[in-house]
Each structure stands twice: as structure tokens, then as C-alpha cells.
């Protein structure tokens, strides 16, 4: 278990509402908070809060145009999380090696 970045991404995406927001941005491209709220079962402040978390994890970017913030997905930020998933295999393999050492050291 490594990569603080991956943890950040996982934490951001642990919430189903945030995942859905991210998904919508990936599928539909740039969206305003208003447009995102129209699809959400939650209030606009809640959507904004979720966007802040996604932004911190670098999963979304934004640009201001007039009074509105336009958000877009940055799916490349998923890379560390995807790598972390793949790392699960390496994690357990390494633990198996340690287990072997522990077994050797145990009293017969």
C-alpha cells in the first residue's frame, strides 16, 4: 500500500455521489454546477462540496466563465488508483514471502 496520491483518489471516489458526478463529466464533457445539480438527488451546495473534493484529488478541473464555474473531468488522475489496484497482487505476494519467513521462525 503506497502512493498517497492513490489514497487521495480512492477517498474522493469512495462516495457514490462523487463517482456519479465524475462519471457524468467523463461522459458528457464540461458542465456547470447548475447542470450537474439538475441530475443530482442533492442540493447545489452539496454538489459544489463534492466538486471541491474531486478537484483536490485532481480528478476534475475548472475554469470560470462569467459567473459560472465550468467543470471538466481529468480521467488521467485515475492512473495512480488503477495502479494501486494492480499493486494488490504485489502487496500480497510480498506478504506471502514474509509469512514464509515467519513460519520458518516458529517453534516446531
Amino acid at each position: 500500500m503506497k502512493s498517497a496520491e492513490a489514497q487521495h483518489v480512492f477517498r474522493a471516489l469512495a462516495d457514490p455521489t462523487r463517482r456519479a458526478i465524475f462519471e457524468e463529466l467523463v461522459r458528457k464533457g464540461e458542465r456547470t454546477v447548475h447542470a450537474l445539480t439538475a441530475n443530482a438527488g442533492v442540493s447545489q451546495p452539496a454538489v459544489s462540496k463534492h466538486l471541491t473534493v474531486l478537484k483536490r484529488a485532481k480528478l476534475v478541473g475548472n475554469r470560470r466563465e462569467g459567473r459560472e464555474n465550468h467543470y471538466c473531468a481529468r480521467p488521467e488522475a485515475l492512473a495512480p488508483a488503477a495502479a494501486w489496484m494492480k499493486d494488490f497482487g504485489a502487496f500480497w505476494n510480498e506478504r506471502f514471502d514474509r509469512l514464509e519467513a515467519v513460519l520458518e521462525g516458529m517453534e516446531k
Binding site: 456519479a20 480521467p75 488508483a81
Partner: peptide
């Protein structure tokens, strides 16, 4: 996942990562 509050949610965790990896064009 438990029922998502948000109507756009279509993926559970695992499918989510898999699907988005494809969208992202093989990021890993």
C-alpha cells in the same frame, strides 16, 4: 455500492475503475 443518491451512478467500485480506465484510454 449501496443505492446511490445521484441518478447518474451506474457503476459499482470495480466496474467504475475498469470503465473509466477504458474511457481514459488505458491510463495504467
Amino acid at each position: 455500492d449501496q443505492q446511490a443518491a445521484y441518478q447518474g451512478a451506474t457503476y459499482g467500485w470495480q466496474r467504475f475503475i475498469g470503465a473509466l480506465e477504458r474511457v481514459a484510454g488505458g491510463v495504467a
